[in-house]
Amino acid sequence: MSVKTLTIDGKDVAIEEGATILQAAKEAGVAIPTLCHLEGVSDVGACRLCLVEIAGTSKLLPACVTEVAEGMQVQTNTPKLQEYRRMTVELLFSEGNHFCSVCVANGNCELQDVAIQVGMDHTRFPYRFPNRGVDMSHPSFGIDHNRCILCTRCVRVCDEIEGAHVWDVAQRGAGCYIVSGLNQPWGTVDACTSCGKCVDACPTGAIFRKGETTGEKERDRAKLEFLVTAREKHQWIR
């Protein structure tokens, strides 16, 4: 197998032929933000976060699907790319309903991480507040479409790894949503093996395990009384 040498942000990298720029960047220790990319499943080049500039072409190319070539000069973090990435993330936040503070994925969310990575302190686009619905029909899992960024990682992991193909994308444009089975409640889809791969593949809190969400938390009515007793009588009893 032959090897290609290229530079990424000025760093020399050698990598086997057929590798993608994203793999080469990883090798070179250059972090390129991604959302729809998931190690182990096919790449679709949909989120456009990993776009890079390549000397000699005016077109921005997605690092996840673009193969390396000999002598390629790649720039991953030019001011233009930084601005476009930030706008992309802002568009995502304005598109769905991402209320981090009450989200099951808060602190463990790739969308949240990418927002930090691209320096997004607010979104310049008006929020759209679509009402996209939640499906809690599955006994173990739930899907909150409001938090979905349509990266299709769940679709691919279910199709390519589990082989069940429970998920796909329905409708088009702003009406797109992740559909289960033949557009039926998730819990009624016979093909679902309840393997939970989609839960793990989801970069946000859109697909989650039941019992972990803020809304499902059980109220502890006795807590207040406990605190009062503790403070006033110095007795830590329940």
Binding site: V44, G45, A46, C47, R48, T88, L91, L92, S94, E95, F125, P126, R128, I149, L150, V169, Q171, R172, G173, A174, G175, C176
Partner: peptide, 12 residues
């Protein structure tokens, strides 16, 4: 609706 800029950029 596959890529973000087109799906949501056109709406904005």
């Amino acid at each position: 609706g596959k890529c973000i800029p087109c799906r949501t950029g056109t709406v904005q």
